[in-house]
Design a protein around this nucleic acid. Structure first.
Length: 593
RNA sequence: GGUCCCAUAGCUCAGCUGGAUAGAGCACCGGUUUUCUAAACCGAUGGUCACAGGUUCGAAUCCUGUUGGGACUACCA
């Protein structure tokens, strides 16, 4: 690493010049800002007290020391307390030669000892996936890829919330409607069909409530006494009792939903190593609550409900089991956590779940800790912000939900129009064209969502369709296609023929090389932060730098064969980095577009 | 009431382990194509980094307070 070597020499300089002992960790150097001349910058201000000299003099002295002692350094300049170090060209030629066609450039070596499980998606089975789920799925997939690139051994899973009152509501509406409609005879996607019945239930429920309120009931009473909700509760009890007819309907309708989800997952390009079902984990959760009672870390209230007291940890008391012995949301999460650990033995377990559940995961971690589970410290909630619409949150009741399938289809339609208008795809088969348009559409959507810091809420305006220009997925895909086009025209090359003495490093070439050099550090940073946005924004910088280079300097028409060869190698590495980085975002890059 | 999160250009977002003149894209205005893909490139306009204090050589970044917005605080999931 270039930085490490520079740091060591700077440490030596501080020692020799000022008798200062500084560990290399205390010395920070950063890439020089583009307004200034140089490759790396060392800020001397923190060492002025020890050097007992002014900033410029100190920087000059260190710079002089470096030029005579460090072979990498060719020259330096000083502005105030900033020592800008310029490296010799051979450093960059070495870098390019070493990595320009290395397939795993930037990736950490695989480490089988570090096992990580990423849970994401985790839908309910009573309604179709929407924009919020899209953010979840894209984040989960990408974070898993980022961790893999950082060497971790990664598994993914999806916990389906397949039981509870919500699915009973859809079931009830379907039963009442005569149990006739199926995905087959209506041609509807299974999750959409079940979602429609959920809406039908809600409509009926609302009208019953309204009638009760008019008769003089309070809202709260009406909510609890409307006939529909009572019937749904009967159904839930039948389910819990194992009533065969109820279970059969439940299985049938959930099956429809899974088929529907699979279609959407496939379109999004996400998949899971393992599915967990709440219906299969909640019983284990109940057992564990009993275990906690035996250990004395939980307690029972007079009505037999089970609680944990977290007031000492700054939280409240939290219910773990209802008075009637049935489980609540966290009960199954307790069971699932145990099951996950048994099956995957991961030291880190990541939950990609919205920030509305920050409290829930604090509780979950504390519960596991108090149960003495060894995996408790490894529980990590990757808490992402909500996707908001211009008028606020998505609400299914107000019809402001952006449906995942609809959004994807609209994006594909827009991409198809744009591609046709540009007319650069002559000669492609219809199938290839379709694939290209899907690649572009998904690229635009995924990039739009992933470029934003996961922890922040983000805004999506359905009226303004997602752009294909500027800092967007298609811009980067286009840059890749451009590079591939150049490389196709270039034909085969032999890097060994490159004579460095014949090659000049122009500003756009050097800027691009410097950026490409940052790729491994970017992967590491993105992995540590678990933020695909870091990769997305980096990729944009690379694409921009390439386009600048492409515009300023000609590649194939360059008459100096060594300069030409060098530029082709530079294109090769750039193309590779764009493709590799986009791979971590789950975005494909086309050969032409 | 309590806990947590957020506030940067007209809009959407970077920058936050303290460093140089706070950056992009979109929108708006102007320019670039006999030349390797113009989904591109170059330029102009646009800022009290919510507000007020503090810490220090230096604060968008760290600390405190204020204001504004959001989430959570269910025997829902």
């Amino acid at each position: 690493m270039i930085e490490q070597e520079l740091k060591q020499h700077i440490a030596q300089a501080l020692q020799q010049l000022y008798q200062v002992q500084a560990a290399t960790e205390q010395i920070s150097i950063e890439p020089t800002k583009s307004d200034f001349k140089g490759d790396f910058t060392f800020v001397v201000f923190p060492f002025l007290k020890q050097s007992k000299k002014g900033p410029e003099q100190t920087a000059n002295e260190i710079g002089t020391y470096l030029s005579s002692h460090c072979a990498l350094v060719s020259s330096f300049n000083v502005i105030k307390g900033f020592l800008n170090i310029e490296l010799g060209n051979s450093v960059w030629f070495d870098f390019l030669h070493q990595h320009y066609q290395q397939p795993l450039f930037g990736f950490a070596p695989a480490n089988s000892a570090s096992r990580v499980l990423v849970e994401y998606s985790s839908p309910n089975t009573n309604k179709p996936l929407h924009l919020g789920h899209i953010r979840n799925n894209l984040l989960g997939y990408s974070v898993a890829e980022l961790l893999k690139a950082n060497g971790h051994t990664v598994f993914t899973c999806n916990l389906i919330n397949d039981r509870g009152i919500h699915i009973c509501k859809s079931m009830l509406a379907w039963i009442k409607a005569g149990m006739k409609d199926t995905p087959e005879n209506t041609g509807k996607k299974g999750d959409k069909l079940v979602g429609d019945y959920y809406v039908a239930f809600d409509k009926q429920y609302k009208s019953e409530m309204k009638a009760l309120v008019e008769k003089g009931m309070t809202e709260e009473e009406a909510e609890k006494n409307a006939p529909s909700i009572l019937e749904a509760q009967v159904l839930l009890r039948k389910w819990e009792a194992g009533d065969s007819e109820t279970i059969a309907i439940w299985k049938k309708m959930n099956g429809w939903v899974y088929d529907g989800f699979d279609v959407t997952y496939k379109k999004l390009g996400v998949s899971f190593d393992k599915y967990y079902y709440e219906s299969e984990t909640y019983l284990l959760g109940k057992d564990m609550v009993k275990e906690g009672l035996d250990k004395g870390v939980f307690f029972t209230k007079e009505n037999q409900s089970v609680w944990i007291d977290l007031t000492a940890d700054g939280l409240d008391q939290k219910l773990l089991l209802r008075a009637d012995g049935t489980s609540v949301y966290i009960t199954q999460d307790i069971g699932t956590a145990e099951l996950k650990y048994k099956e995957f033995a991961c030291d880190k377990s990541i939950y990609v779940v919205g920030n509305e559940q920050d409290y829930h995961f604090k509780v979950l971690q504390l519960v596991m800790q108090k149960l003495g589970k060894p995996y408790a410290p490894g529980i990590y909630h990757l808490s992402y912000g909500m996707v908001e619409l211009p008028h606020g949150k998505m609400k299914s009741r107000e019809g402001t939900v952006v449906d995942a399938d609809d959004l994807i289809d609209e994006m594909i339609a827009t991409a198809t129009e744009t591609t046709a208008a540009l007319g650069k795809t002559e000669g492609l088969t219809e199938a290839a064209l379709k694939e290209l348009n899907e690649t572009i559409a998904l690229g635009a959507l995924k990039y739009f969502i992933l470029k934003v810091d996961p922890r922040k809420k983000m805004l999506f305006n359905p009226q303004e369709s997602i752009d294909f220009h500027g800092n967007t997925g298609p811009f980067i895909q286009y840059t890749h296609a451009r590079i591939r086009s150049v490389l196709r025209n270039a034909g085969a090359i032999n890097a060994e023929e490159l004579n460095r003495n014949e090659v000049q490093l122009h500003e756009p070439e050097k800027k691009l090389l410097e950026l490409l050099y940052q790729y491994p550090a970017t992967i590491k940073d993105a992995g540590q932060q678990m933020s695909p946005g870091v990769v997305a924004n980096y990729t944009y910088e690379v694409a921009k730098a390439f386009n600048h280079f492409y515009h300023e300097l000609s590649i194939l028409k360059e008459s100096n064969t060594h300069q030409r060869l060098f530029r082709i190698m530079l294109c090769t590495l750039t193309g590779h980095v764009l493709k590799s980085a986009f791979g971590m975002l789950g975005i494909q890059v086309p050969e032409r577009m």
